[in-house]
């Protein structure tokens, strides 16, 4: 996609996607990052439900921005921000969406690079925000 067709997608958001937070997914994530915190593994230690590690929410399904086509292999993660309203627990049902909020171009070491900025949000069933994210990715394969 060209810079202009990326820019045409600014402001568009995905349809919210229902994500059910599973114990096994939290345990597997904690294992992968090698964090021994018992709150991520042991329900008794966690006081009932497992707690998800602070970066876990990046792995949820936020859906796709309509009309936006991303070359998966050409993407580089440049920045990531989280704003937490409460922890995520196993058993949570979260509705997640993503919105393209900015597109800009920079000249870098690897040549011309297109930066895409997404704002992502996970809400509970009552519509309360649980975590907000801002994610900046560099698209290396952007056409002219």
């Amino acid at each position: 996609m060209s810079l202009e067709s990326f820019r045409a997608c600014i402001g568009r958001a995905s349809e919210p996607v229902k994500n059910e937070i599973e114990k096994g997914a939290i345990r597997k994530f904690a294992e992968a990052i090698g964090d021994p915190n018992p709150l991520y593994r042991d329900e008794a230690a966690a006081g009932g439900r497992l707690v998800a590690p602070p970066t876990f929410s990046r792995t949820l399904d936020y859906g796709r921005v309509p009309g936006l086509e991303l070359p998966r292999a050409g993407l580089i993660h440049a920045g990531q921000e989280f704003e937490y309203f409460r922890p995520i627990y196993s058993g949570d049902v979260l509705y997640c969406h993503t919105r393209l909020v900015d597109v800009f171009e920079k000249q870098g070491k690897l040549g011309r690079m297109v930066f895409l900025v997404f704002e992502m949000e996970a809400r509970d069933q009552d519509g309360n925000p649980v975590v907000r994210q801002k994610s900046t990715v560099i698209c290396r394969e952007a056409g002219d």
Partner: peptide, 9 residues
């Protein structure tokens, strides 16, 4: 509790 957390790679 963690409230905000942001990084650049």
């Amino acid at each position: 509790a963690l409230k905000r957390f942001g990084v650049r790679f």
